[in-house]
Amino acid sequence: MSDDKTPKAANIFDVARLAGVSHQTVSRVLNGLPNVRPATKERVEQAIAQLRYSPSPAARALVTRRTRTIGLITPGISDHGPVSIAMHFNLAARLARYSVDTVSQVDSDPETVRTAVEGLLRQRVDAIVAVVTDFGVLELVRGLDITIPLVASASTARRSPRVVSIDQYRGARAAVRHLAELGHTRIHHLTGPNAATDSAERIRGWRDELSAHRLEAPDPIAGNWTAESGYRVGLTLDLEPGAAVFASNDLSALGLLSALRERGLRVPEDVSVVGFDDVPEAAFFYPPLTTVRQDFAALGRQLMQKVLLALEEGDMETMDTPLPTELIVRASTTQR
């Protein structure tokens, strides 16, 4: 009988011995977790390359009782924000060598989302991430008691270790501050849907910034984040000389711009307009739109980092600081 000369495949402990670190440190490097010194990370990566180590997903699942799959629950809407968050989370998960099982909910109500959570638990996902746009769903997520990590992307004034977010409140304040500093004294706000968490935070920021400038807050104008709603509002909105409008998103701002142009009102000479989101088309509106940019790529990475910390470190208590926004000034606003 001939000897089998096939070299034995390296394992994580071989990598750890060669790099002079623990196997937990090797795991942290493989999963892209923070708090590994650059020199240590380099030694581990050199050892991985030297040993040609390739972790087996099947073997790792047997050892850790994990599937390396994350459940992602998204609202069944095509709005720029939720779609971008989902896309960038998927990219971050892929970089961390996780697959994503996505459930898109046509009805974003608590019971529908609860059913989605139960379905993902039956599939033995390692963690669940929810892109939340509705107050009722946010309260459900906060109250769920399940055995795996659950992380949500949501806008809320009440912070939670389960929630990561972009700072809608300060983004709205920056938009209104820009208009006030240009000399506008009457700043209207076209809102998003009543049940939307993002919309509520932007309304709160609009009110507080007006108060900081000792300006009266007109009644908010109900919208639903569509270009059609902005257009309908723009046809009838009573605008005083030198007025401005802060639209809760760029699509409603687009409809507003179209209606104002039909009425013979010039933007920004007669009316300044600011949006929110900085959709890729915003720079090509007529005129190019001043807006508030959100970093959805950073949010996707933060969601995945939160999941990894929970899975690898058992850390679900760290409170994350909301990510900042950026005011992008273009041609739809001007000095009074």
Rank of each mutant, 00 (worst) to 15 (best):
A172W: 05
L251V: 05
A10N: 02
L256M: 07
R177W: 12
G230T: 10
R17D: 11
P161N: 07
H23Q: 11
R66V: 10
D320Y: 15
T133Q: 13
P287K: 07
A96Y: 04
G119Y: 04
T40Q: 01
R97F: 10
R177D: 13
R186V: 14
Q302E: 12
P149D: 08
L121N: 03
P110N: 05
Q335K: 12
Y231T: 01
T25I: 13
Y98M: 06
L30G: 01
P287T: 02
R60S: 12
Q123G: 04
L308K: 01
G20T: 03
R293K: 11
Q46R: 15
L327D: 07
N31P: 08
T333G: 04
A175V: 05
T147Q: 13
A195R: 14
E269V: 09
G32M: 08
G300Q: 07
Q105Y: 03
A283Q: 12
R207P: 10
L289N: 01
L18N: 05
N11M: 07
G223T: 02
N11Q: 07
L30C: 09
L121P: 04
E181K: 13
V273E: 07
P161Y: 09
P38S: 07
M1V: 12
V132G: 02
Q50A: 15
R43F: 01
V163P: 00
E201Q: 14
A172T: 09
R207D: 12
V176P: 02
S211R: 12
L179Y: 07
L120N: 00
R68Y: 15
T25F: 03
L260S: 05
L121D: 04
A195T: 12
V329F: 09
A175E: 01
L323G: 00
T290V: 06
V292D: 01
R170H: 15
E326L: 11
V15F: 00
E42M: 10
P193L: 13
T185N: 14
A93K: 05
V245L: 11
R122T: 11
D101T: 14
A283C: 04
Y169K: 13
R28Q: 13
R43V: 02
F296K: 00
P324I: 06
L257S: 06
V44C: 04
I85V: 15
A243D: 10
H23C: 02
L303Q: 09
M316S: 15
R204D: 11
D208I: 08
P288K: 01
D238H: 12
D320L: 14
P55V: 02
L120D: 03
S165E: 12
F284L: 07
D14E: 11
A19E: 02
G242V: 05
R60Q: 13
G314P: 03
T197L: 06
S153L: 03
Q168W: 11
P220H: 08
T226M: 04
A212N: 13
E209I: 04
D134I: 06
A86Q: 11
L256C: 06
G32V: 02
E139V: 08
E326C: 09
S153E: 12
L299Y: 05
L18S: 04
E317I: 10
I203L: 14
D315F: 03
V137P: 00
P268C: 04
A212P: 09
R266H: 10
D14T: 10
H188P: 00
